Computed example of a mutant assay.
Amino acid sequence: MRPSTRFASVLTGLALAVGGAALTAPAAHADVSACINRVERELKGGEAPEAVRTACGNGETGAQATCVSGLTAGGVTHGTAVAACTLSPQ
Rank of each mutant, 00 (worst) to 15 (best):
V39H: 00
V39D: 01
V39F: 02
E40Q: 12
E40D: 04
R41V: 07
E42V: 07
E42T: 04
L43N: 04
L43S: 03
L43Q: 03
L43V: 10
K44P: 01
G45P: 11
G45N: 11
G46H: 05
G46N: 08
G46D: 05
G46P: 07
E47S: 13
A48L: 04
E50Y: 14
E50S: 13
A51N: 12
V52F: 03
V52R: 00
R53W: 13
T54Q: 12
T54K: 15
T54M: 15
T54Y: 11
A55P: 01
A55Q: 01
C56H: 03
G57Y: 03
E60L: 09
E60V: 13
T61C: 14
T61K: 15
T61P: 10
G62Q: 04
G62R: 04
A63V: 14
A63M: 12
Q64V: 12
A65V: 13
T66I: 15
T66D: 15
T66M: 14
V68R: 03
V68T: 08
V68K: 06
S69M: 06
S69T: 08
S69N: 13
G70A: 07
L71T: 01
L71N: 00
L71D: 00
L71R: 07
L71H: 02
L71P: 01
T72R: 04
A73L: 13
A73Y: 12
A73W: 15
A73F: 12
G74M: 06
G74F: 09
G75H: 08
G75F: 08
G75M: 10
V76Y: 00
V76C: 01
T77A: 11
T77P: 12
T77V: 10
H78E: 14
H78K: 14
H78D: 15
H78V: 14
G79F: 05
G79D: 07
T80I: 03
T80Y: 00
A81F: 01
V82Y: 11
V82I: 09
V82L: 14
A83Q: 05
A83R: 06
A84S: 04
A84P: 03
A84K: 02
C85G: 06
C85L: 06
C85A: 08
